[in-house]
Computed example of a mutant assay.
Amino acid sequence: MAGVATSGRQRSRIAPYLMILPALAYLAVFFVVPFFSLARTSLSSTAGSVYMPTLTFSWNFGNYTDAFTRYQDQILRSFGYAISATLLCVLLAFPLAYVIAFKAGRFKNLILGLVILPFFVTFLIRTIAWKTILADDGWVVSALDAIGALGSDGRLLSTSWAVIGGLTYNWIIFMILPLYVSLEKIDPRLIEASKDLYSSNTRSFTKVILPLSMPGLLAGSLLVFIPAAGDFINAEYLGSTQTTMIGNVIQQQFLVVKDYPAAAALSMVLMLIILAGVLLYTRALGTEDLV
């Protein structure tokens, strides 16, 4: 009996590790191996022709120096656009998520369906649609021009505003849904209690609703900022040569110039900056309730 009990305890200790083994194998094959391959490429040198380049691992840290010096503007622009799009997503998504969670009533599922419905269309088609909407001969430009809201060039397309708008539209769904989930978990009686204690609407929001919705705000911010920083589709179709993002440079270096070490170094720089920013951001806001 003692042997059976010991065997049972051993199996119970091994079982959790066996359960996570498939996930670990998946991460090893599709994340760890490609990451080390990318890191190795970023420290390599290239030789041969453009059509048949050969890579030689040589600890070439000059690729990283070139990444910062040659493409500093694109790096800063990418993070500036990503931060702007994230802030816009917060400002637009929070009121919508609040209305769905507390005010929609029996129309809650309908509104959620309408929010999600456009995102059944592929990312590329949605971006091209925005190119049509913001075209120089479109109704949006005509309406804004009529009220004098456009600049001297009278354009929206091929501007920074168009790129930021495209990023905001394409990623806002990842802000709405986490915020909605966090807001729906809030007990309405807590808000009523704050009103009973003579709190104004503003104070109830800052002291009750905002702190309790912070997990959704944190998750939504990360889900918007990270892909927006590496995006290249919006800058390609809605921007110009003056709005190029680092994703466009990486795509060109990989597929057109075929300078694989430079492209890999830029990718590593982008990942490391995003990782550092995410760690600082989560440390500042806390992740205890982020589940």
Results as ranks from 00 to 15, higher is better:
Ile172Thr: 14
Ala143Pro: 07
Gly148Ala: 06
Val163Lys: 00
Pro211Leu: 10
Gly148Thr: 02
Ala149Trp: 07
Gly151Val: 00
Ile186Ala: 08
Asn201Ala: 15
Ser182Glu: 11
Met175Pro: 10
Gly148Ile: 03
Gly138Leu: 08
Val181Gly: 09
Tyr169Trp: 10
Asp187Pro: 00
Gly166Gln: 03
Tyr180His: 08
Trp171Glu: 06
Asn170Glu: 13
Val140Gln: 03
Ser160Ile: 03
Leu177Gln: 05
Ile147His: 09
Leu183Asn: 13
Ile191Thr: 06
Ile186Asn: 11
Met175Leu: 10
Leu197His: 00
Ser200Thr: 00
Ser182Tyr: 03
Phe174Pro: 06
Ser158Asp: 15
Val208Gly: 07
Ile172Gly: 04
Val141Pro: 01
Ser204Val: 00
Ser142Leu: 15
Met214Glu: 10
Thr206Asp: 13
Ala162Pro: 04
Ser199Trp: 01
Met214Gly: 13
Asp196Lys: 00
Val141Leu: 07
Gly166Asp: 04
Leu179Lys: 08
Leu183Glu: 14
Met214Ala: 14
Ala193Pro: 03
Phe174Asn: 04
Ala149Leu: 06
Leu156Glu: 09
Tyr180Glu: 01
Thr168Lys: 12
Ser160Lys: 07
Leu177Ile: 15
Phe205Leu: 01
Trp171Asp: 03
Ile209Asn: 01
Glu192Cys: 06
Leu167Cys: 13
Trp171Gln: 03
Ser213Glu: 11
Gly166Arg: 03
Ala146Pro: 06
Ser199Ala: 11
Leu144Tyr: 08
Val208Ile: 12
Met214Cys: 12
Asp153Trp: 07
Gly154Tyr: 10
Pro211Glu: 07
Leu167Met: 14
Tyr169Cys: 02
Gly138Val: 01
Ile176Asn: 02
Ala162Gly: 09
Thr168Asp: 09
Leu183Phe: 13
Ser182Asn: 11
Val208Asp: 07
Ser182Lys: 13
Ser204Cys: 03
Leu210Ala: 15
Asn201Glu: 15
Glu192Lys: 08
Thr206Pro: 09
Leu177Gly: 04
Ser213Ile: 11
Ile173His: 06
Leu179Asn: 05
Leu157Trp: 09
Pro178Lys: 05
Val181Leu: 11
Leu177Pro: 02
Phe205Arg: 01
Ala162Phe: 09
Ile173Ala: 10
Ile147Thr: 08
Ile191Ser: 07
Gly148Gln: 10
Thr202Val: 01
Ser158Asn: 14
Ala146Tyr: 13
Leu183Pro: 14
Ala143Gly: 11
Asp196Ser: 08
Tyr180Gln: 04
Ser204Pro: 03
Leu156Val: 04
Asn170Arg: 11
Leu156Tyr: 10
Leu144Asn: 09
Gly148Glu: 07
Arg203Glu: 13
Arg203Cys: 13
Asp187Gln: 05
Phe205Cys: 02
Leu144Val: 04
Arg155Thr: 14
Leu150Pro: 03
Pro188Leu: 05
Ser200Lys: 00
Leu156Met: 13
Trp171Ser: 06
Phe205Asn: 04
Ser213Gly: 12
Leu177Phe: 09
Leu212Lys: 06
Gly148Tyr: 04
Ser194Lys: 00
Leu179Arg: 05
Leu190Gln: 08
Ser152Gly: 15
Thr206Ala: 15
Pro188Asn: 07
Lys195Pro: 05
Ser152Tyr: 15
Thr202Gln: 05
Ser194Arg: 00
Leu157Tyr: 11
Leu157Gly: 10
Ile209Glu: 02
Asp187Gly: 01
Pro211Thr: 12
Ala149Cys: 03
Ser182Thr: 14
Leu210Phe: 12
Leu212Met: 10
Ser200Met: 02
Val163Asn: 09
Ser158Cys: 12
Ser213Thr: 09
Ser152Phe: 15
Leu144Glu: 01
Gly138Lys: 12
